[in-house]
Amino acid sequence: MTALTDVTDAEDLAVDAVSVELAGTRLVHEVHLKAAAGQVVGLVGPNGSGKSTLLRCVYRVLRPAGGAVRLDGDDLHALTARQAARRVAALTQEHSVGFDFTVAEVVAMGRLPHRRGMGGPTDEDRRRCTEALHRVRAGHLAERGFLSLSGGERQRVLIARALVQEPRLLVLDEPTNHLDIAHQLEVLALAREAGPTVLTALHDLNLAAGHCDLLYVLRAGRIVASGTPHEVLRPALLAEVFGVRATPVRHPDTGALQLLFDRLP
């Protein structure tokens, strides 16, 4: 993936005492979370901890049962769909394309919030879409049908679509799913280079440690720890929350925190 030439403005995110309910069951309980403009903030926790549910509330698929999600002080759920789409983009785990659009057409959908009236794509729209595809090393796929792609190729195309939306907040739900190791290492770096505030759910704690400024640990819908990766990813907490024995080590070149895992005795 290549470096970005256009950098998006970022905005502060505040999740204020947000609770989420589905079918009468409360899945997220009064979560407080902050991400300063331009930060990459990670949500980590075991399966079923509420990460995806909370993210769905942030990108407006679900409404909070209590509390509010604010971007630069504005209640996101009080914005029109168009207003929100100009400020928030999401890469979700559940994505489907009903018809076999070309890759170029799928990426161009990210420009829809910026078009006026019923007008078609402009030369600037096309330039941004082409550049985004090259950023994710998918330029050669532009004329391919989206449904013919592998899981990893689809993921890279959807990342490009999110980037051309020029969001102030980029929400990523397990963005490294289906990606090979090289692209796993690059995708969060690419999101940071693009400039928006990033809120991402991650299963891979080593990716979280290497790419996130702050981490929030969810368990049973509640925040149980928050802070920098060094503050949060401690053996005692990982044993309690994830049920694993973790040994922290330092990367020999960068000094970044890395974790070795084993089953608890």
Rank of each mutant, 00 (worst) to 15 (best):
R56P: 01
A138F: 06
T5E: 15
R156I: 06
C57N: 02
G66H: 12
Q39T: 03
Q155M: 00
G48S: 03
P248T: 11
E11M: 06
E240D: 10
E193N: 03
L147C: 05
C57L: 06
A65G: 12
E193K: 03
L13W: 04
L71N: 04
L260S: 09
P265C: 03
L147H: 02
A225C: 15
I223F: 08
G120E: 14
T247A: 13
L33A: 06
R263Y: 04
T254C: 02
L54P: 08
L13K: 07
V217M: 11
F261L: 07
L237P: 00
H140L: 08
V249C: 15
C129H: 06
H29W: 02
R86V: 14
R234K: 10
A89G: 02
L27M: 07
P121A: 14
R115I: 09
F99W: 11
V88C: 00
G98A: 13
T80P: 05
L4Q: 01
A189P: 03
L205Y: 10
F99E: 13
E105S: 06
G38R: 07
T247M: 04
A220M: 03
A162I: 11
M109A: 09
H203I: 14
A65K: 07
V244T: 13
R192A: 15
H77Q: 13
I181V: 13
Q165Y: 00
F261N: 05
G221K: 05
A182Y: 12
A189N: 10
R250H: 14
L33D: 10
H140P: 08
E21Q: 06
E186R: 05
A236D: 12
T80G: 13
G139R: 05
G98K: 12
T92R: 04
G38H: 13
L170W: 07
E94S: 10
V171L: 12
L259A: 05
S148M: 05
A23H: 06
R60P: 01
G145V: 07
L43S: 01
H203A: 06
A84P: 08
H230S: 10
V61P: 12
A17P: 05
R263A: 15
A208R: 00
A220T: 01
L33W: 02
V97G: 05
A10K: 01
L233C: 08
